[in-house]
Design a protein around this nucleic acid. Structure first.
Length: 353
DNA sequence: AAGACGGGGCT
DNA sequence: AGCCCAGTCTT
């Protein structure tokens, strides 16, 4: 026990030294603007740096300040987020921007406790922003940090549990130096990402291998321990793509399911409703041409698209139906402006749209 | 404590 | 096919 503190200091020194030789060059490190840092951190939640990078550039260019984001229509923000996944991040981002601009007088929360109150900001993100932008000594614990600490200190707690989150946060906070805490946090994540990688880390070349528990005990392949397996549910979806002249019928997805706030199509159950309107004559019916298999981390979707073209004289009646059913009629050349799930983008591409 | 929530890359 | 990624929120 008496040796713990010196060991911790040694660990932090090694990590920092490694980082000074091997930093990743990341654009959000050029700034101390909490808004830009927040933007980058939300984009990077559960997202690889390489995948998030183009979105960071798009967003920081379209919305250079929290005011710009606050003033934007939500539809536009979601459209810009299209393809990145976990769309509640975009909705929360926009919600918070409005809150900060209109309720907090444009003053970005400047400490861990207040940052934590923002929707979509948990302990990781609050630590990241408070340390990077404000020099607060709060340690981040992301997937990288779980892995590094688990291996180096030989912690066998299942990292999927809340107990582990507390344990690792306490440990990381005991390691973080009061001076340059942000640098330590960056160092931990870069070290986890480039040196202490999930699979096949190059431990022989690691400057920490001298006192790494997992390396010395041949547990690199075992740690960190993660028990929980996400189970994948299979779901079948049969969309009905309803067209009338240049108009397509779209459905905005509601909360409580995947893709909330994005646009897709009504499902084929709408056909029974369609049949009740004598005015909505079908000109052409195109049955599914293929089945799309779309894989999410937690759902395995088997999707078919049927297409119905109505007589263009049915335009006004269709409009009425859409209002009743909370559907949207969108001209074909405006489809690009809708935020759509990747699956739908794939379908449209096959249709030549 | 356990699920839900996307999409992509790598083995 | 399975795991992981600069996690958070809801139930």
């Amino acid at each position: 026990m008496s040796k713990k503190l010196p060991d911790n200091q040694a660990f932090s020194k090694l990590i920092i030294n490694w980082y000074r030789d091997n930093p990743r060059d990341l654009p959000w490190r050029d700034t101390q603007d909490p808004y830009i840092i927040w933007l980058s951190e939300i984009i990077l939640q559960q997202t690889r740096v390489a995948q998030g990078m183009p979105y960071f550039y798009k967003f920081s260019e379209a919305y250079p300040t929290v005011k710009d984001l606050a003033m934007a229509p939500e539809e536009e923000v979601l459209r810009l987020w299209q393809g990145l996944g976990y769309y509640s991040r975009a909705r929360n981002l926009h919600f918070c921007a409005k809150q900060i601009w209109f309720e907090l007088g444009g003053n970005f929360p400047d400490n861990y406790k207040d940052l934590l109150k923002l929707k979509g900001v948990g302990s990781y993100t609050a630590s990241a922003i408070s340390s990077f932008a404000f020099g607060e000594a709060k340690a981040v614990v992301d997937g990288n940090v779980f892995r590094v600490l688990s291996r180096f200190f030989g912690i066998q707690t299942d990292i999927a549990t809340g107990k582990a989150k507390k344990e690792f946060e306490a440990l990381a906070n005991s390691l973080i130096p009061k001076e340059n805490p942000g640098e330590f946090n960056q160092a931990m994540m870069d070290f986890g990402s480039r040196q202490c990688t999930p699979r096949n880390p190059d431990c022989e070349a690691c400057p920490l291998n001298g006192s790494c528990f997992a390396f010395k005990n041949d547990l690199i392949q075992v740690l960190p321990i993660k028990i929980k397996k996400t189970k994948v549910k299979e779901r079948k979806i049969h969309y009905l793509v309803l067209k009338c002249g240049e108009n397509w019928v779209w459905k905005k997805r509601s909360t409580g399911d995947i893709w909330a706030g994005l646009y897709d199509f009504p499902t084929e159950e709408i056909k029974s409703i369609l049949d009740k309107y004598a005015e909505l004559k079908t000109k052409e019916f195109i049955p599914p041409q293929k089945e799309y298999l779309h894989l999410l981390s937690h759902q395995r979707l088997k999707v078919q698209f049927s297409e119905i073209r109505l007589e263009s004289s049915a335009q006004d009646h269709l409009k009425k139906l859409c209002e009743e059913q909370e559907l949207a009629m969108v001209e074909e050349d405006k489809i690009d402006y809708l935020a759509k799930p990747k699956l739908i983008v794939n379908y449209l591409k096959d249709q030549g749209i």
